[in-house]
């Protein structure tokens, strides 16, 4: 530290400590990377099996399935969106 830095340092506004942010971010990212390490990526298989189950009860278009996994710190969400085909007029008549 040169003598100029001494004055510069005293003038500067105190920034909030950043080490705690580093720790938090690391803990979150590593928690997820460690899961990925021990298990293979299960999403494609999950999607396949879910679609197969739904298809047993409802006629669906396998192309119209959307799967989203959002990994957060405290909570992760798995969202599955399956678009059901518009009921055909014939079947609608039969049902009513």
């Amino acid at each position: 530290m040169s003598w100029l830095d001494y004055f510069r340092a005293t003038r500067k506004e105190e920034a909030p400590p950043s080490a705690s942010a580093a720790k938090e971010r690391l803990q979150i990212v590593l928690a997820h990377e460690r899961i990925g390490r021990t298990r293979e990526d299960f999403l494609p298989k999950l999607q396949q099996e879910l679609v197969a189950v739904v298809a047993r009860y409802v006629a669906i278009d396998p192309g119209k399935v959307k799967l989203d996994l959002d990994r957060g710190g405290d909570m992760s969400t798995l969202a599955i969106e399956i678009e059901l085909p518009a009921p055909s007029p014939g079947r609608q008549a039969a049902a009513s």
Binding site: P16, P17, S18, A19, S20, A22, K23, L26, Q27, L30
Partner: peptide
């Protein structure tokens, strides 16, 4: 820098 909160503490690295 650790004391100023600018660097990860030893304990943090060990814990992680």
């Amino acid at each position: 820098r650790v004391e100023r909160g600018e660097m990860l503490k030893l304990e943090d690295v060990r814990e992680i």
